[in-house]
Nucleic acid binder design. Structure first.
Length: 596
DNA sequence: GCCGTTTTCGGCCCGACTGTTTTCAGTCG
């Protein structure tokens, strides 16, 4: 059983307890246990073999340890099951409606036996909610809007959509010119999460902030044309919905609180809770205005994030690491990674040209890459099985290799690797003959068909592809499409071990609909000693810009420049790849790709 | 249900905003 499965059961128990009217501490203890289990790297199933180890975790006592044992033994938890006899499982969906929390859910259940979003929607439409104590016409209206949103989408958008929207909002806010000191995007966008729920902005008014100045700033922002609905408008916070469905929160904060506010609004919530806990233990309290002493109300630090971390006896923690998944412990030990940056990247190892499904020629891609300052790229058009993408068969691949060699001479100033994104067939064999694979400088492999094989068969298929002596890079390893398609089901740890054994590099595909491997898997790859390559999978020269999303995802996976092979200069990069098999009748060194 | 350089009992992170209320409960991040 995975940690997240146990955490989910405990989390649901906590919500059900809260709906059931349990005292605050009881459900909080379940909530805290769930948060802890989903954040620690150790496998709880292993830890639970030793009761002392389990109860040494903060927030896990004898009682909770017993519950965890029960979940591990039976796959479920009796208290959760008992509560689900009292309430339908769909009651938890109601909590995802904006403006509805456990107390209102409990009330709706008590009064109307409303146990699903549909039940609540019906009551709201019939006007039956407005007369309940604590509700009103406005609440009813808001519930209807929330139901519509719930039914329309999961409420999250991809990182690229959020990044672009945020850029537009920020640009509009900056039109205030001298009236503001700065505007900074925070939240999960700043942490580079693969999907974003809403956008958070921090605005620092220029000079001494008066309510009048803040009001003027908010008045300007609320005139942003794409605003569909204003959700909240207070003294120092506004919140609104854009026509594309994204929610935006803007907070005005005085300059002296910039660091505390940035820390607070960047999150994650879990990281913040952990920091506040640490602050309390050290005799401080932390909020969005400052780190202060618990008693004297004396401000200890507030202007920069680094200052606050320093007072908490921690080095600065990069936003991408702030998920409470061990970064605070690593910071304590001085063991934080020195994260990779976009400037470290020297090449791009997956892209397509007009030969298959790309929009630009070999030359156009090469020139654009050279202009970005790259030292090398690999041209990786699809192989023949991917017919929808006009994949290349053996003959066309050989011709493409020749064209790439000629283009390299013409373009100059950049090394072009003749490569191919070779399809992994259903049985794990590769889509091109060995003698053609032998002609390629780099062999990248990936799956584009039979994505729903059962776990064991899919694992064997990928292992077979890795064991193929020509395979050097495993591209978009899990095949997921964010918000659209689940990853392939296979044993990732087995695959990573095979990659290390055979010197196969795994890809972090930077295309924002993929980001594959994802952050957690990249971290796992690093732990298992597997090298990573970050590639854009560009289908046009414009897509080279997507590299930033791949780097951000790698940073979330705790990767440093030395973990990523396309940060290496040409010669070192080549020696980091799996050596090509010797061709029969030739010396083993003859076909090694060389740094020309 | 957990936990203690304030505590073995009495708290549980904390502040803003809304909508309801007429001083505050509920929700959110």
């Amino acid at each position: 059983m995975e940690n997240r499965d146990i955490a989910r059961i405990l989390h649901e128990t906590a919500l059900l307890l809260e709906i059931d009217g349990a005292i605050i501490g009881r459900y909080r203890s379940y909530e805290k246990a769930a948060e802890l289990l989903s954040s620690i790297p150790e496998h709880v199933e292993e830890l639970a073999k030793d009761r002392a180890k389990l109860t040494s975790l903060p927030g896990i006592g004898e009682g909770m340890a017993g519950h965890i044992d029960e979940i591990l033994a039976t796959g479920d938890y009796s208290l959760r099951k008992k509560l689900l006899k009292k309430y339908p499982a769909t009651i938890l969906d109601i909590l995802s409606l904006q403006g509805i929390g456990p107390k209102k859910v409990a009330l709706l259940w008590k009064k109307f036996k409303a146990g699903s979003v549909e039940d609540v929607a019906k009551l709201a439409r019939e006007g039956k909610l407005r007369d309940i104590a604590g509700f009103g016409e406005k609440t009813e209206e808001n519930i209807l809007k929330a139901v519509e949103f719930f039914q329309r989408s999961s409420g999250r958008v991809r990182l690229d959509v959020a990044t672009n929207t945020a850029a537009e909002v920020a640009e509009y806010i900056r039109k205030l010119g001298g009236k503001i000191e700065s505007v900074t995007p925070a939240g999960s966008l700043r942490r580079g999460k693969e999907t974003i729920g809403d956008l958070d902005f921090l605005v620092i008014p220029a000079g001494r902030p008066t309510q009048k100045a803040i009001d003027a700033i908010f008045d300007h922002i609320l005139k942003f044309p794409p605003i569909q609905q204003v959700l909240a408008h207070g003294e120092n916070k506004i919140s609104f919905l854009l026509t594309n469905g994204m929610q935006v929160d803007v907070r005005a904060i005085a300059e002296e609180s910039h660091g505390a506010a940035l820390l607070y609004f960047t999150g994650s919530k879990e990281h913040n809770v952990a920091l506040r806990g640490r602050a309390n233990a050290m005799g401080y309290t932390l909020n969005e205005y400052a780190l202060s002493t618990l008693k004297g109300e004396r401000h200890v630090a507030s202007k920069t994030e680094a200052e606050i971390y320093a007072k908490l006896k921690l080095p600065y923690i990069e936003p991408e690491l702030r998920e409470n998944t061990g970064e605070i412990e690593a910071a304590e030990k001085g063991a934080l990674p020195k994260l990779i940056t976009l400037d470290d990247i020297r090449g791009d190892l997956q892209m397509h040209t007009t030969a298959s499904d790309g929009h630009n020629s070999i030359e156009e891609m090469a020139e654009a890459a050279r202009d970005l300052g790259y030292e090398y790229i690999a041209l990786t058009d699809h192989s023949k099985s991917v017919t929808v993408a006009n994949g290349l068969d053996e003959k066309r691949t050989l011709a493409q290799i020749k064209k790439i060699r000629e283009a390299e001479k013409r373009v100059g100033g950049i090394r072009l690797f003749a490569s191919s994104e070779v399809d992994i067939l259903k049985d794990g064999s590769l889509d091109l003959h060995d003698d053609v694979l032998a002609e390629l400088d780099i062999v990248l492999v990936s799956i584009h068909s039979y994505m729903n094989l059962e776990r064991a068969e899919m694992t064997d298929r990928i292992l077979a592809a890795i064991e193929n002596p020509y395979t050097q890079i495993l591209a978009h390893p899990t095949g997921r499409l964010i918000l659209k398609r689940e990853p392939y089901d296979y044993d990732i740890e087995k695959v990573l071990d095979a990659c290390r054994k055979h010197g196969v590099v795994v890809e972090c595909n930077a295309a924002p609909e993929r980001l594959d491997f994802r952050d957690a898997n990249l971290r796992l790859a690093k732990q298992r000693g597997v090298k990573v390559v970050i590639s854009t999978d560009a289908h046009s020269t414009a897509h080279f810009d997507l590299m930033k999303y791949g780097v951000q995802t790698a940073r979330r996976g705790w990767l440093e420049a030395h973990d990523v092979v396309n940060t290496f200069p040409l010669k070192k990069f080549l020696s980091a790849l799996r050596p090509k098999p010797a061709r029969s009748g030739e010396h083993s060194t003859a076909r090694k790709a060389t740094a020309r």
